[in-house]
Design a protein around this nucleic acid. Structure first.
Length: 1050
RNA sequence: GGGCCUAUAGCUCAGCCGGCUAGAGCGCACGACUGAUAAUCGUGAGGUCAGAGGUUCAAGUCCUCUUAGGCCCA
């Protein structure tokens, strides 16, 4: 009935067996089914993208995502675990571009948008099988057969519904965003992409002259004294992008800076620059006339350097901005709002007009009549622009400027900073609410709340929703080409009502063909953008159920989440997008508990990345150590929000210290329970009637259940894992080791039954206790220990309830007392070690403090056996030891010099009360000198033949005097030990009786004869033959220095 | 440049509300045990608690600054 356990079986084989068992009995689904109707523990799965291979970090995430749902299921909750896939976005497009060797929008258009989009769709699930396998091998239970996928029409429709809700609240608006932009690929680049493409280049730079208008105003600001009011005054501004000058609409100065007015006597004109830059603009001909602050310059109007900006509104004025520095140029920055993020912002803040004279391919529009159609980053264009200015006397200076400028990582084209039409969600309007919602969330670790997330929300900006790409959820906004009327569509039904038809799918390019006629007679056409993929994933609480079009009940039952978990980089990613959308639509946080994980790093604490080549393949780790070992390592190693080092040696260690240890105890139990055909149902020994050791390990067990339960309830699996590891370690290294003999006693006396029952109860409970943490070994243990005889028990450990700590079994006092026992054992072993007398040599007496008799008295059997002594005596220290006041001569010498000999003499003769006084007060007077604690200590010497050890907790003494009887017994133990080793080496069944033959030293043989019966009983010997014999194994031994040759035969 | 986290033995980590001589595992050396046996146990060596200053009767722990590393963002 018990399967014999091969503790050396590779973990992979064991786990494969468990996996097929789970499949066969549909255990995962059953675990959900059996809790239907129970309170819901709501878990949201953050969707990964399946077009890349999983990384060790994904293993950690999945472990932490799995543990708590499993735990809660066992605690009686229903946990819906719907998988999800994040399918849209630029990374997918780039994979397809790579596959077909194309790059950039033009080539995509040549490739065909329909074909491109279909290829994206095909590529999305490239690694789905690998991800499935990862989940399965890891024992990550999630419903991969009914996942939500962001690319389905249902999902998109739900997202549209959310967008329309936001639109109707007036929070969705169109603006511009200045982004790094490649005019060749006609796409914006992410900061990551930009960072890849910096190159040092020499660009033409120019310091242009902007003539101030309104001489009277200028005269008022600068009290320019004797200079005629009509002296032309120019503000100087330096730029490395002359092509932006035709779009100039303002000049920015720092309001805090001082600006000086420099008069050039030769040219009879004035220049304005920041004071911090003035030395670069002074010559013999020039002098500083006067100065004013940047703030005072604000509002001055100037003559535009090009005539193209004709739009009505505020333009060509001096504005202020604190971002202006005086580290280069003139301390004045020319503003072209379409071509710089700061420019755009400053112009917006100051109500200055917006113009853009460069088309999407980077060429001047017709408005710039002198340069129309020319590419702005072309060097000659910039030269021509400068010449054009120079011809009109508007160039102060020109030169070449070398700087790092970003280039497209794909096509090497210099990037433009370029204002793109963008749709925004006005997050700033609900900022206070978002912050409040976040503050109500239980962030784990807590510092995320006010730290990373809190700071991020304090600096909240509007959400730039649109992406001018192809593969994504289309922004459902239609605009009339005549009257500009806009409409946001919130469902397929609405779309059909407007357009009279639906596209074949809600993706580009199909959706772009859906048009209708506006009330004004114009044509309603969709804006070209798709949306940020973060909006997709943040919509999942709604869209995973196709809410509100279907599954209203599911949605309401499963919102908000009790638990989500991702790595820390999701703070501004998924955690934020979920929070933002929920706050916008529902006015509340979408989750209650958020576990934020650290990153998985390599052995040296470096990030694992493909480029460094230090990524450990998760599958290799599964094969090598097994999923349980991986899971346990991640759980026990450190709290999961710290970064975790991951390397094979560390996982192997976790396996050895927990999985293997437990499997060893399991093997031990299976072996002897098998031999005796032990069936727990057939025996009953009340716990109160079991030996102390049994009561102790049960107390230890139930104490651990309580602690582990508390920890898991608080999302602290690390503490739970550590508690359980401690239990398993005590079980193996103390309980089983100390009680082995009870399991191989003959028959089935009450004591033996108690031992079996106790070990059974512990193992059966541990199986359930570890089920959420290490589900494979838990199942293995449960099947063999419980299900092998109890067919009424649930089919799988994962269908069981979590163990309940029984308070009356947690005997705190007993736990405390066993701590003292272990202290005594350790101290005594230390003495054994010092005495050089091996444990097989019995000794007469172990001395322990009398005041511990109450605590240790009932454990004398255990102590005597463990330490192999005949007697445990509880005594006063003074009875067995003599104290000595031992001086630290170096310290005493430092204080009292040549008086040391006299003081030392006094110390050696110190009366007991002197020593008692020193012990109590830490100082005493010797030979007229004060001896303090740092100068002396009290040492104890054994007053009996043996050793003594005195520590803060108490003392332990070991009598090492040997008698002939003790020596003879030592020989017996030695002979038994050698015989057992031989049995093991031949590998007889543990119950097989054997024959031994012996010859050698007469004294040893005499001892063997005298104790033959006892030896035979212990070693299971049928017959001892004195002399030589043919057998299975013959060995020559050294028995305490005397030769003995043994032969064994089955 | 801003923010967050981390720093304790050769390595990986504990260390509660500030409180006895700062612990564990691994590794190393030595020893032991043995019907779990490529398992197990003990002992030993190994510490500037990153550095400096402060608060306190008392600081690894609280405060300030510095240094180094990691992460997020500009």
């Amino acid at each position: 009935m018990y399967r014999k356990v091969d503790a050396k079986e590779p973990a992979k084989a064991r786990e494969q067996r468990v996996l097929s068992f789970w499949r066969e009995h549909d255990v995962f689904r059953e675990s959900e089914r059996m809790r239907e109707g129970s309170p819901e523990f709501v878990f949201y799965e953050g969707p990964p993208t399946a077009n890349g291979r999983p990384h060790p970090g994904h293993v950690l995430t999945r472990v932490m995502k799995d543990v708590y749902p499993r735990y809660r299921t066992m605690k009686g909750f229903h946990v819906t675990r719907k998988a999800g896939w994040d399918t849209h976005g630029l990374p997918v497009e780039i994979e397809v571009e790579k596959k077909f060797g194309i790059s950039g929008k033009k080539q995509i258009q040549e490739f065909g948008i329909e074909r491109f989009v279909q290829e994206c769709k095909n590529s999305v699930f490239t690694y789905e099988q690998t991800w499935r396998e990862l989940s399965e091998r890891l024992g990550y239970w999630v419903d991969l057969d009914n996942p939500y996928m962001t690319l389905t029409d249902d999902y998109i429709e739900s997202v549209w519904h959310l967008l329309k809700t936001i639109y109707e609240k007036g929070l969705l608006y169109k603006g511009h965003r200045v982004s790094p932009y490649c005019p060749h690929c006609e796409t914006t680049l992410s900061s990551h992409e930009v960072a890849q493409g910096y190159k040092d280049v020499k660009d033409l730079s120019v310091t242009a002259k902007f003539r101030l208008l309104d001489p009277s105003e200028v005269a008022r600001v600068f009290a320019q004294g004797q200079l005629p009011d009509d002296t032309p005054t120019y503000i100087l501004a330096w730029t490395t992008t002359p092509w932006t000058l035709p779009s100039n609409v303002a000049l920015a100065v720092n309001p805090e800076f001082t600006y000086v007015l420099i008069h050039d006597a030769a040219a009879k004109e004035n220049y304005v620059v920041a004071e911090g830059r003035k030395e670069h603009y002074l010559t013999e001909e020039r002098r500083v006339v006067t100065a004013c602050t940047g703030a005072e310059l604000a509002g001055l109007r100037y003559q535009p350097v090009f005539p193209y900006v004709t739009v009505d509104g505020k333009k060509h004025v001096v504005v202020t901005s604190s971002h202006v520095t005086d580290e280069s140029g003139t301390g004045v920055v020319h503003m072209a709002p379409a071509f710089g993020e700061d420019d755009y912002r400053v112009c917006q803040e100051n109500g200055v007009v917006f113009v853009n004279f460069v088309d999407l391919s980077g060429h001047f529009t017709d408005t710039v009549s002198d340069f129309a159609g020319r590419f702005v980053k072309d060097e000659q264009v910039n030269v021509d622009i400068v010449k054009h200015l120079a011809a009109r006397g508007l160039v102060y200076d020109k030169g070449k400027h070398e700087h790092a400028y970003p280039h497209c990582w794909r096509c090497d084209t210099p990037l433009l900073y370029y204002a793109i039409d963008s749709w925004f969600i006005r997050m700033t309007a609900i900022k206070a609410e978002v912050i409040e919602n976040s503050r109500g969330v239980h962030w784990i670790p807590e510092h995320i709340r006010d730290g990373r997330m809190g700071n991020f929300l304090e600096n909240l900006v509007d959400w730039n929703l649109s992406r001018s790409r192809y593969w994504g959820t289309p922004l459902p906004i239609w605009v009339c080409d005549r009257c500009g009327r806009t409409e946001c569509i919130g469902s397929k039904a609405e779309l059909k009502e407007r357009a009279g038809r639906l596209p074949q799918e809600l993706h580009k390019p199909y959706i772009d063909d859906v048009r209708w006629t506006c009330a004004c007679g114009g044509r309603m056409e969709r804006v070209p953008e798709v949306i940020d993929v973060w909006f997709d994933s943040g919509s999942m609480p709604f869209a995973q159920w196709h809410y509100p079009f279907e599954n209203q009940e599911q949605f309401h039952r499963l919102y908000p989440a009790d638990y989500v978990c991702e790595a820390i980089d999701q703070t501004r990613g998924w955690f934020y997008s979920l929070l933002a959308i929920s706050s916008l639509v529902k006015g509340m946080a979408p989750y209650k508990n958020v576990l934020v994980l650290g990153h998985v790093v390599d052995e040296d604490g470096k990030k694992m990345s493909k480029s460094k080549g230090n990524v450990i393949d998760p599958f290799e780790a599964f094969d090598l150590h097994g999923a349980d070992a991986l899971r346990f390592y991640f759980l026990v190693n450190t709290q999961p929000w710290n970064s975790q080092r991951f390397y094979h040696r560390a996982v192997a260690e976790a396996k050895a210290k927990f999985i293997d240890l437990l499997q060893n105890v399991h093997a031990f139990y299976a072996l002897y329970a098998g031999i005796d055909g032990f069936c727990p149902a057939e025996h009953h020994v009340p716990v109160a009637e079991r030996p102390l050791m049994d009561r102790w390990i049960l107390a230890r067990l139930h104490d651990t259940i309580r602690r582990a339960d508390e920890a898991l309830a608080a999302f602290d699996a690390t503490t739970a894992a550590r508690q359980i590891q401690g239990l398993v370690n005590d079980l193996s290294t103390w309980y089983v080791r100390r009680n082995r003999e009870r399991f191989w006693a003959g028959g089935m006396e009450a004591d033996k039954a108690a031992a079996f029952l106790t070990l059974y109860e512990v193992l059966a409970t541990v199986a359930k206790l570890i089920a959420p943490l290490t589900p494979f070994i838990a199942e293995e243990l449960y099947q063999n220990v419980v299900r092998s005889w109890d067919e009424t028990a649930p089919v799988s450990v994962h269908l069981c309830d979590f163990p309940v700590a029984e308070a009356d079994l947690v005997d705190e006092r007993l736990l405390d007392e066993m701590d003292w026992v272990l202290w005594a054992v350790e101290s005594a072993r230390h003495l054994r070690n010092e005495s050089k007398l091996k444990t097989r040599q019995p000794l007469s007496t172990l001395y322990l403090p009398q005041n511990l008799e109450d605590v240790l008295g009932k454990f004398t059997d255990i102590l005597a056996e463990e330490l192999n002594v005949k007697e445990v005596a509880f005594v006063q220290l003074e009875e067995i030891a003599r104290p000595e006041l031992f001086l630290n001569l170096k310290e005493v010498g430092r204080a009292y010099g040549k008086e040391v000999p006299a003081i030392n003499q006094a110390a050696k003769q110190a009366a007991p009360q002197v020593m008692a006084a020193f012990a109590a007060e830490g100082k005493v007077e010797l030979a007229g000198r004060v001896i303090t604690r740092d100068m002396a200590e009290i040492r104890y010497h054994a007053a009996f033949p043996g050793l003594i050890d005195v520590s803060g907790r108490g003392f332990v003494g070991l009598n090492t005097q040997l008698t002939p009887e003790l020596i003879e017994e030592g020989f017996v133990r030695e002979i038994i030990s050698k015989m057992q080793m031989m049995r093991k080496e031949v590998d007889y069944e543990v119950t097989a009786k054997v024959v031994f033959a012996a010859y050698g030293d007469e004294e040893v043989l005499a001892i063997l004869r005298r104790h033959q019966e006892r030896i035979a009983r212990t070693v299971l010997i049928r017959d001892v033959h004195f002399g030589s014999m043919e057998g299975d194994l013959t060995k020559e031994w050294d028995i305490n220095g005397k030769p003995l040759t043994l032969t064994v035969k089955g």
